[in-house]
Simulated assay, not measured.
Amino acid sequence: MTDNAQPGRVGYREIADDLRRQIDSGELPPGSKVPGENDLTSRYGVAQLTARHALDVLKTEGLIVAKRGSGTFVREFKPIRRVSPDRLRASNSWGSGQPIWATDIGTRPRTENVAVDVELPLTSIAEVLGLDEGARVVVRRRTYVVDDKPVQLATSYYPEALVAGSAINEINTGEGGAYARLRDLGYEPVRFREELRVRMPREAERRALDITQDTPIILIVRTAYTADDQPVEVNEMVLDSAAYILEYKFTSQD
């Protein structure tokens, strides 16, 4: 296509397909510079808007990234493999003083923008946690970042009456994180329930994750329960779909 392109006969999807082929084949390896709008306009004989749309397609797919003042490059980022239920086993992670994501495979994210507040919860959160009207929750918000790129937003809710005075109210919860602190309080989480859905991002999520409006996010809502089925945490996680592979392990044994 590149050598035989003629004006008016190539659309943005064909250009995106051609560039994607070059990326998949290694002709454009990770970290290499992708032809810019002007180069594509000349090479394929198309308008600049068509070239821009082609690049936007690949950005949406997470294949290329724009670096301000430098150009557009093939993404070097390797997806994080989020392995469940390994990451929630106490012996693998928080029970041995490690963060939950220590069991994930791939580049380890760092935590940024941690904020802790006490708030009245939404009705949906209050119902899951079994709270009475007017009861408040401790809310922990944070962002996970890899190579300076946000990959996940997380918001956890804990009954205020249950975690009052503990390190869960602090920016640094200590070794093992919040689940280890819940165990210290006598509310060790032993059972988890996760709900997963895929949707388009809300504007605040799009900005926080630095993704385009047409890049879907993965929403995971996890509820943690004690041995006697008391809910002790609701965690809402918003994942950049281009950054993660979700792996689930099952057994046929009861």
Score class of each variant (00 low, 15 high):
D117W: 01
S156I: 03
T2G: 02
S42Q: 13
V118Y: 08
P109Q: 08
A115K: 13
V137H: 01
V234W: 00
M237K: 14
I23S: 12
V34G: 09
V138S: 00
Y225P: 07
L122T: 11
A66E: 13
Y187R: 12
E188H: 05
R140C: 04
E175C: 08
T111G: 03
G134P: 11
P29Q: 12
R197N: 12
S91I: 09
E160I: 04
R81F: 05
E76C: 11
Q48D: 06
A164C: 07
G69N: 05
Q22G: 08
D39C: 05
G97W: 03
T155L: 00
M200F: 14
P85H: 04
N169W: 11
E127R: 15
L58T: 07
Q230A: 09
A51N: 04
G71T: 06
P30F: 02
F250K: 09
A47N: 08
F77V: 09
P231D: 02
D104L: 01
F73D: 01
A115D: 08
R81M: 08
A115R: 14
A66H: 13
S42V: 11
I217L: 02
G36I: 05
R81T: 13
G176H: 05
F77R: 15
T143H: 01
M1Y: 07
G130R: 03
R87A: 09
L219Q: 15
E194M: 12
P189A: 04
E205Q: 11
G69V: 06
L63I: 06
V57T: 12
V146K: 03
D86E: 14
G165C: 08
I218L: 12
V145W: 04
L49S: 14
E205H: 12
S96L: 05
V238S: 13
V57W: 01
R108L: 10
V139R: 13
L55V: 08
L120G: 08
R141A: 06
L182I: 03
A204V: 09
E133P: 04
L122N: 11
E205A: 10
D39K: 12
I23F: 13
G62T: 10
D229M: 03
D240V: 08
N92T: 04
L55C: 05
P121Y: 00
S156Q: 11
T72Q: 09
P216L: 01
I15E: 04
E170V: 05
V46C: 06
